[in-house]
Design a protein around this nucleic acid. Structure first.
Lengths: 252, 252
DNA sequence: CGGAAAATTGACTTACATCAAACTCAGTGG
DNA sequence: CCACTGAGTTTGATGTAAGTCAATTTTCCG
């Protein structure tokens, strides 16, 4: 069960050899005995304005995080994939609604409980802080994408970063699953559906990607996409080695 | 010296009566005996990629935080004004360069020292976490602004939020100081200088603002600007009550 | 005062949005 | 099994907000 884990740890020569295993254990143990909740497609985990009282670990599925503006526009602030945490970097009330894109299974841990555990556990605290800083870093990256990049660059960036996060990036050819709709992608990238489609069509014509049904596509020329995207936050590549976490979450 | 402090504390009936005074003390005491550094205009406090080893409290002046993209575009991720903290939500290396827009005076506290102090001090820790969550919240707000708002809405949002942060918002008419250049504003809002100028000119024509030299302007119709801006994050209005902090930082 | 950087304004271009019309496809029910 | 349905997607024609290029004007500062 931990074979791939050990192999990966050995690969990552840059990390202190003892940290990764113990930290991964810590975080998983935290959630291991928590109740497993399920969400149907379209169901909300919480709404913008709800009091923050839990943090969540996604076991399976995909969530969208969004805010509706007074005039009805929808801003998607992010997506949450299997293996990731949610609700860490909020205090008071949630600043977005979290809604299931696919059927979701996740574990819930009350903040009160987390704080109680954190009191003495410096190591756990450090681990959670790291996650918070990663979220911050991702938000800042998103700011650069929205503020500075053109439509093609944005879509390319989205594809590359989604690929990295879902951890399917070791296979050739690289396949990425995009459970969200084109509208979701558009609202995430500050574009319209039509523009997202046109860009994807162009990428297809240019041989950068090959669609495999609506929600799956093959990245034929990852490097070209990366060039377009500009430097995807390197942290995204090193963070959350899913091969380490996933087996612990789904030991099936 | 603490007269305004006490008055304001009494005003804020929503907060637990004992927290604010003691927390304000805590944060100020933290920096009170730290060395005071100075930066000349254009001088960098740190560069993107530098190791994170300090956090800073701005005593006076204004910083811009930016990243340069491979092709030379500059993305300004934010500004730091007097009374605010910097470097809290980073780990490892800074993800942006911090550069003085005006002459700056600030206090520096090493992370090592901070961590040492934080070990037992739950209250201090909570205070810092709140600042981190506020930064996160501001980043998310910025994401919405860049992804969803048009040029006029962006500029309006910028003016309102700058006004709230610099705390000049109690006076009528409302005066706001904008020490940064138009180019800075443009790079922050994902627009061009020309567009920023045009929007400001339009606001002037429409009587929403009245320029008072390059770096100062009067907001004649705050409410119209707020309508344009959409809901400015309410947190921004309640955060960092400068009247509370400033007297402690500059007791002159 | 003189010179340079910043700001403003105008003319023109363009990337993306909007509007509109097919097309695809997963689900449903006969 | 297949036709029907409706949401999601794709493509095309056209509009427009913002970018680009270029020429002044203003402001700052030695």
């Amino acid at each position: 069960m931990y074979a791939s884990h050990l192999v990966l740890s050995a690969d990552r020569a840059t990390l202190p050899p003892f940290d990764l295993p113990s930290e991964a254990m810590t975080l998983d143990c935290l959630f291991a005995h928590q109740p497993m909740d399920k969400l149907a497609v379209g169901e909300a985990l919480f709404w913008e304005g709800d009091m923050v009282s839990n943090i969540f670990q996604m076991a399976e599925g995909c969530l969208r995080l969004y805010r509706i503006l007074p005039d009805g526009r929808r801003a998607i602030m992010g997506f949450v994939f299997a293996g990731e945490l949610l609700g860490l970097s909020c205090q008071g009330t949630y600043r977005y609604t979290a809604e299931a894109i696919t059927p979701v299974r996740l574990r819930r841990l009350s903040r009160a409980r987390l704080n109680a555990m954190g009191e003495g556990a410096e190591q756990l605290r450090a681990l959670l802080m790291t996650r918070i800083f990663e979220e911050m870093s991702a938000a800042q990256q998103h700011i650069v994408v929205l503020g500075q990049l053109g439509a093609e660059e944005r879509v390319a960036h989205f594809l590359v970063s989604a690929t990295c996060r879902t951890g399917a990036n070791l296979k050739r050819p690289v396949v990425v699953e995009l459970p969200m709709t084109r509208q979701d992608i558009a609202d995430y990238l500050g574009l319209t559906v039509e523009t997202v489609c046109r860009v994807l069509s162009k990428f297809k014509r240019d041989g950068l990607i090959a669609p495999e049904g609506r929600h799956m596509l093959v990245l034929r020329r990852m490097s070209s996409l990366q060039d377009l995207a500009g430097e995807v936050d390197d942290r995204a590549l090193s963070e959350r080695p899913t091969a380490v976490q996933r087996p612990a979450v789904w030991p099936n």
